[in-house]
């Protein structure tokens, strides 16, 4: 991983991952400095929203809706039978 900041661009080597007080904690080192990054569960949807392009999210929603409709139609047809 790489961290860009106003004081420079540094490598961040992850040496461990764990759950601490309900937060995801990445342990590692930024160069020679011991460093950790903590992510709270409430931040995950926001991170995911930034990672997944809007078009992909729309596509996933359409596919999900189509799958739900198909499943519902299948159940109805079984009941009718």
């Amino acid at each position: 991983m790489i961290i860009n900041s106003p004081v420079g661009r540094f490598p961040f080597e992850v040496t461990g991952v764990g759950l601490v007080d309900g937060r995801i904690r990445l342990e590692g080192a930024m160069g020679t400095w011991p460093t950790s990054v903590e992510v709270t569960p409430s931040e995950l949807p926001r991170i995911a929203a930034r990672l997944v392009p809007r078009s992909a999210a729309v596509g996933a929603a359409v596919l999900g809706s189509a799958a739900a409709l198909a499943l519902a139609a299948r159940r109805r047809s079984r009941r009718a039978a």
């Binding site: 004081v7 420079g8 661009r9 540094f10 490598p11 080192a29 930024m30 160069g31 020679t32 400095w33």
Partner: peptide, 10 residues
């Protein structure tokens, strides 16, 4: 800084 490179970056 925690890595070598200075203004040239690591």
């Amino acid at each position: 800084l925690p890595a070598a490179g200075g203004s040239w970056q690591f």
